[in-house]
Simulated assay, not measured.
Amino acid sequence: MILEISNLKQRMSEGGNWQSFHDEITALHTKATTEEEYVILLEAHAILVELSKSCFDDATYRRLLPIIASEYLLLLNKEATQNGLVNSNLLERITRREVETGRLDPNDEFRKLAVAGEDMIGKTSGVTAHKCKHGDWFFYGMSFATILVYGLEMISWSPLWLIVIGLVAGWKINERERSKIKNLRAH
């Protein structure tokens, strides 16, 4: 566990600047890798929300509250992010954990959306096709075409027509992979 995360709540109990702790929680959240670290940071965020009642006047606190609530949901989304995309199954598990700990209302719209997302997309544990990101096969096709272009250029033959073939081949392969994953989820 990252040392700054493990002793964060202890340091917060000793007092300090609200904004500094806020910035630190946000920065440490990008470094967290385990559920335990994420939970500690979310607990620290909840403590910070409680402290903000005494740190700010009522008008400022009321303006700050929706921002803090949105930030909390963003932290949950970041925890559920894998390969740049929010994993709906992971988000459902995270929001369930947050409901169980009392940090999230079970009737919260975000929780309902997380459950609906998992139900709609389905469990992905059975998906066995290799990952398919937009552009993977496009990249391979363009790389192959580029190598051919330079190779054919050495024999004085204009190979520009291969770029189009590379684009089409990359697109076709990418679509094939995406349909494999789609078909696996449907069954």
Results as ranks from 00 to 15, higher is better:
residue 1 M to T: 02
residue 4 E to G: 03
residue 4 E to N: 07
residue 4 E to L: 15
residue 5 I to W: 00
residue 6 S to L: 15
residue 6 S to N: 03
residue 7 N to C: 12
residue 8 L to M: 11
residue 9 K to N: 13
residue 12 M to P: 05
residue 13 S to K: 14
residue 14 E to S: 08
residue 19 Q to I: 10
residue 22 H to R: 13
residue 24 E to I: 05
residue 26 T to N: 11
residue 27 A to E: 03
residue 27 A to L: 08
residue 30 T to H: 03
residue 31 K to Y: 05
residue 32 A to W: 00
residue 35 E to V: 02
residue 35 E to R: 12
residue 37 E to Y: 00
residue 39 V to W: 13
residue 39 V to K: 15
residue 40 I to Q: 03
residue 40 I to D: 08
residue 47 I to Q: 01
residue 47 I to M: 08
residue 48 L to I: 07
residue 48 L to V: 05
residue 50 E to L: 06
residue 52 S to K: 10
residue 53 K to H: 09
residue 54 S to R: 12
residue 56 F to Q: 11
residue 57 D to P: 05
residue 57 D to V: 02
residue 58 D to R: 15
residue 59 A to M: 07
residue 65 L to W: 13
residue 65 L to P: 08
residue 69 A to P: 03
residue 69 A to I: 12
residue 73 L to W: 01
residue 74 L to V: 10
residue 74 L to W: 05
residue 77 N to E: 11
residue 77 N to C: 02
residue 78 K to P: 04
residue 79 E to A: 02
residue 80 A to C: 02
residue 81 T to D: 06
residue 81 T to S: 03
residue 82 Q to A: 14
residue 82 Q to I: 11
residue 82 Q to S: 13
residue 88 S to M: 14
residue 89 N to L: 10
residue 90 L to I: 13
residue 91 L to H: 06
residue 92 E to G: 11
residue 93 R to C: 13
residue 95 T to C: 01
residue 97 R to N: 05
residue 99 V to H: 00
residue 100 E to M: 06
residue 101 T to V: 09
residue 103 R to G: 02
residue 104 L to A: 00
residue 104 L to V: 01
residue 105 D to L: 00
residue 107 N to E: 01
residue 111 R to I: 05
residue 113 L to M: 15
residue 114 A to Q: 06
residue 114 A to N: 03
residue 116 A to Q: 09
residue 116 A to T: 13
residue 118 E to G: 13
residue 118 E to W: 04
residue 120 M to G: 15
residue 123 K to L: 07
residue 123 K to D: 10
residue 124 T to Y: 04
residue 125 S to M: 03
residue 125 S to C: 10
residue 126 G to E: 03
residue 127 V to T: 01
residue 129 A to L: 06
residue 134 H to K: 14
residue 134 H to V: 15
residue 136 D to S: 09
residue 136 D to Q: 01
residue 137 W to C: 12
residue 137 W to S: 11
residue 137 W to V: 07
residue 140 Y to K: 04
residue 141 G to F: 00
residue 143 S to Y: 09
residue 143 S to W: 03
residue 143 S to R: 14
residue 144 F to Q: 12
residue 146 T to V: 05
residue 146 T to M: 09
residue 146 T to C: 07
residue 149 V to C: 07
residue 152 L to Q: 04
residue 155 I to V: 13
residue 156 S to D: 09
residue 158 S to N: 13
residue 161 W to L: 11
residue 165 I to F: 12
residue 165 I to P: 06
residue 168 V to L: 11
residue 169 A to L: 06
residue 171 W to R: 01
residue 172 K to Y: 14
residue 173 I to V: 09
residue 174 N to M: 12
residue 174 N to L: 12
residue 175 E to V: 03
residue 176 R to G: 05
residue 179 S to G: 08
residue 180 K to L: 05
residue 183 N to P: 01
residue 185 R to C: 00
